[in-house]
């Protein structure tokens, strides 16, 4: 068998099974630590602002990607509120198994910033729409770990 034939099953060609064993411990970084601390302690999103370019970065970075100004001392805090910029509906597959249960995943543009955040939205696939106003629901202060998962989910803001 060779390049002229197309094996259709994995076991049709001899193989050797092995793994690629690596594990990582990522630092959250200068901006990441500030973001995490702000979320845990005050339930707000920390963003950085470049005055010269007039841009508020979320996720925050310690530099302006346009003019390269140092933004490590240029923080603002905004509440967990915004609008759904785009969304998808995906099967819940925590274990890799097919599932009938669906969830809404959205990119949420956060008010007062040029950025946003990815999150789950507690709304039915039939009811969700682009432009929907949503707010984040945080874990109770005692349960927050200083991670993005402290935002349990987003929910529609009822007007």
């Amino acid at each position: 068998m060779g390049i002229r034939e197309k094996p259709t099953r994995m076991d049709q060609v001899q193989s050797w099974r092995a793994d690629f064993p690596v594990e990582y411990l990522y630092t959250t970084g200068v901006a990441g630590e500030r973001f995490a601390k702000t979320l845990r302690e005050r339930g707000m999103l920390a963003a950085t602002r470049c005055q010269r370019c007039g841009v508020t970065y979320l996720p925050p970075r310690i530099y302006c990607q346009r003019c390269f100004a140092d933004l490590s001392e240029s923080w603002v805090e905004v509440p967990l509120q915004g609008v759904i910029h785009t969304y998808t509906v995906v099967p819940v597959r925590a274990t890799g198994e097919p599932s009938q249960s669906l969830e809404v995943i959205a990119y949420i543009r956060i008010d007062g910033t040029e950025g946003g955040i990815l999150g789950r939205v507690a709304v039915s696939p039939e009811a969700v729409y682009i432009g929907m106003a949503v707010e984040g629901v945080l874990a109770p202060p005692a349960e927050r770990r200083g991670a993005v998962t402290d935002i349990r989910y987003f929910k529609p803001i009822l007007s």
Partner: peptide, 26 residues
Amino acid sequence: FDHTLERPLGPNLLWIFALEQSRYMH
């Protein structure tokens, strides 16, 4: 994906394509 802000949510590649296609169509 960003290891601090996105990977904890368990995204896969299909998500971001779906999000982009959805925005493009809209």
